[in-house]
Design a protein around this nucleic acid. Structure first.
Length: 226
DNA sequence: GACCAGGCACATC
DNA sequence: GATGTGCATGGT
């Protein structure tokens, strides 16, 4: 914890309140690191329940390995991941990552994850179809790097509670967390998952917050941090 | 039928 | 740098 001690403490209280309200979220739900990567691409702007069907199809077809996906045709892959939506786009993105993995690391995910996050992140971002959130999800949830993941929920929940502005960029919001929290993968893992839970459960787009466990932070003054 | 869901690339101003 | 659009399925 550096930067701003006041807001660092606030973020810590925020986290403990969320954990108390919802309990551990057990992210990322997957059997292998490779499954995490594929899931991270398939869940782009898509409900996780739809991704589960797609993953199940890939497992049933015995395609959930770098080698098998590398051999599979684009059409076959697309048809199997159809339930996750944007299936043509995502088939290309999964293929692009697998190609990158095969060509650069001989299909060995462990080898890819041996390098420091600062070296790996730009490489992931250079793969077409992998943006900041997908790259960071891979780093944190597949690689156990202390990289905080930002998503639409994070922005909405924090914005709703006036902790940050809705307009801050991805990198700004990420820095906001990482400048104030100790670099613990376990903490980042749970924190992000809890923010998603809060976004689903209470901080919905339409009905707005209701019965939100974070309302205690709004009593009296509204802390405008960003 | 409208709205939403664990984004990203690309075009345009 | 900000803003708009296409991509698509399945649940509420």
């Amino acid at each position: 914890m550096k930067k701003n001690l006041q807001t660092a403490r606030e973020l810590d209280r925020y986290y403990r309140r969320l954990l108390q309200a919802y309990g551990p979220q057990h992210w990322w739900p997957a059997e292998t690191r490779f499954e995490v990567v594929v899931g991270a691409i398939l869940t782009q702007n898509t409900a996780w329940t739809n991704v589960e069907r797609a993953i199940a199809n890939l497992k049933r077809a015995r395609l959930l390995t770098p080698e098998a996906l590398h051999r599979a045709s684009l059409r076959r892959l697309a048809s199997l991941i159809r339930p996750s939506g944007y299936f043509n786009i995502k088939a290309g993105r999964v293929k692009a990552f697998v190609r990158f993995l095969m060509e650069t690391y001989q299909g060995d995910l462990k080898r890819m994850l041996k390098q420091p996050a600062e070296a790996l992140r730009p490489k992931l971002l250079s793969v077409k179809g992998i943006g900041p959130e997908t790259a960071d999800s891979i780093l944190l949830y597949a690689g156990d790097y202390p990289i905080f993941v930002i998503d639409a929920y994070t922005r909405r929940v924090l914005g709703r509670h006036r902790l940050t502005s809705h307009r801050v960029s991805y990198d700004q919001l990420q820095r906001f967390f990482m400048d104030r929290l100790k670099p613990h993968p376990g903490l980042y893992n749970e924190y992000h998952a809890l923010l998603v839970r809060a976004g689903k459960e209470h901080c919905k787009p339409k009905p707005k917050c209701k019965g939100c466990p974070l309302e205690v932070f709004l009593n009296g003054k509204k802390p405008k941090i960003w």
